[in-house]
Design a protein around this nucleic acid. Sequence first.
RNA 1: GGGACCGUAGCUCAGGGGUAGAGCAUCUGCCUUUUAAGCAGAGGGUCGGUGGUUCGAUCCCACCCGGUCUCACCA
Length: 521
Amino acid sequence: MSEQNELIKRRLEELEEIKKLGINPYPHRFDVTTDSKSIIDGFTDPENDEEKEKQKKVVVSVAGRIMAIRKMGKATFCHIKDETGRIQIYIRKDDVGDESYSVFRLLDIGDIIGVSGYPFRTKTGEVSVHALSYQLLTKSVQPLPVVKEEVTEAGEKIVYDAFADVELRYRQRYIDLIVNENVKNTFIKRTKIIQSIKRTLESNSFFEVETPTLQTIYGGANAKPFVTHHNALDIDLYLRISNELYLKRLIVGGFNRVYEFVRDFRNEGIDRTHNPEFTQVEWYQAYGDYYDSMNMFEEVVEKACIDIHGASKIMYGETELDFKRPWKRIRMTEAIENKLGIDIMKMKKDEIINYMNTNGINFDPKISHSKGLLIANLFEESCEEDLIQPVFVYDFPIDTTPLCKQLREYSLSDLEEMKKNPEQVIFAERFEPYIYKWEMGNSYTELNDPVLQRSLLEQQVERGRGGEEETHPLDEDFINAIEVGMPPTTGVGLGVDRLVMLLTDSQSIRDVIFFPLMRPV
RNA sequence: GGGACCGUAGCUCAGGGGUAGAGCAUCUGCCUUUUAAGCAGAGGGUCGGUGGUUCGAUCCCACCCGGUCUCACCA
């Protein structure tokens, strides 16, 4: 506020003038008896003069921010905005008195006022409050973008000079929320979606828990972590990339069904569907398998959609999405066969590499050692784009994760043979739900064989040393927990931000996060 | 990180080698049922930053800063 432009200077002068008049521009409280929506919804037009006079006796008090002022000499119209909407205020010199009326010239768009008066309908048909008195509640000294609205006869709202600069909107979300009507609705829906997910989980006996954000060792996902430092202990700590390993410890500890909404932090690129910190809900269910998780997942999402929209069908941009249960389920290998017409199981590793090269399908040479990773890569590159309607893609090559059980149909002796043959891909009971080409989550029949668990995690550490990025360091205490014994368990992670995007028709993750990360100015 | 595009008044935008325009907002005056209120007048800008080319740069060039989209990365 040191570099004052004319508008701010003017407002600060007004502030001083108000103080000189003995008016506190920042009083401590105001008795609000109603809100704009209740006034408008509750208004009934008087049928005769007697009734009209009666209505004048019913005084209400509302408070809100001034969004528009129309001065007409000895009368002024303004619109104030509260949590429930906008309402017009009619202030007349005769009613509020000369002194009070003259103070109004010191008020601006952006100031917050409280008004006491009676509801009436103006000549032009708008339900308004005829002020008997008003009080300044907060003087604003920053000029607010002035957004004008016109309501056509058809009832359509036309917005002029919308506050549209995306950068400013994100950096100063409080202004965005004040002047852009839909922004607030999106965030209200976000909270309702989260509440709905919690209700569904709670009604299925899942128990809400809290686990550490600051972790001495990170794991549970393949991602680069943020590093920070604890001074007293003089150790580096990681901001969690996932809470998976902690929730499994709680399953070991005897909680059979747990869930947690967590902020995960991943030190990666930013784009339309990625923010460095994002929200996931993970839930774990003892004695269940990944089919149980599919059922829960589709229930959670379908109910969230119905809670928000009243139906399972929504539009996302130009695309209609239907979340109605049950969702389609397809094996990864089937998805590849359907799309490309190749039976990936019959192809040798080199044939797959060859196929990808000749068809211009990108893959990271670092994964060429693993037929399983190549298959997963081929799937992502060629099939993802077609997955518009909700679908569970299941049975992933085991190389894609060290935390998941292999398929139940393998006998123990089969597995011994398969492991010896690098052309033999072992699949794991993992699925990912896809909606609108996006991975909406991740789920396993969780691995609880401590010997295999240790061996898979150690292999991953080795691969990390071999140059593959984003693998886990070894979490000995987690293995210890699995050694103590985790019952058969299934777990799910659901990307909350992306679900909110879909259900609010938002085109960027930044539209569903109040304060997305921005480079400092 | 690569590419394309953008950055001009508080907000939304136009302009373009001779140091800037509009609407809204602001200020002054008139107006006691207006509503994108109206009418008359006024003020407001290091044209993102730093260099360069030029007699002269907001405009051309380079670099930098910030952003948007996109590709890569990211399950």
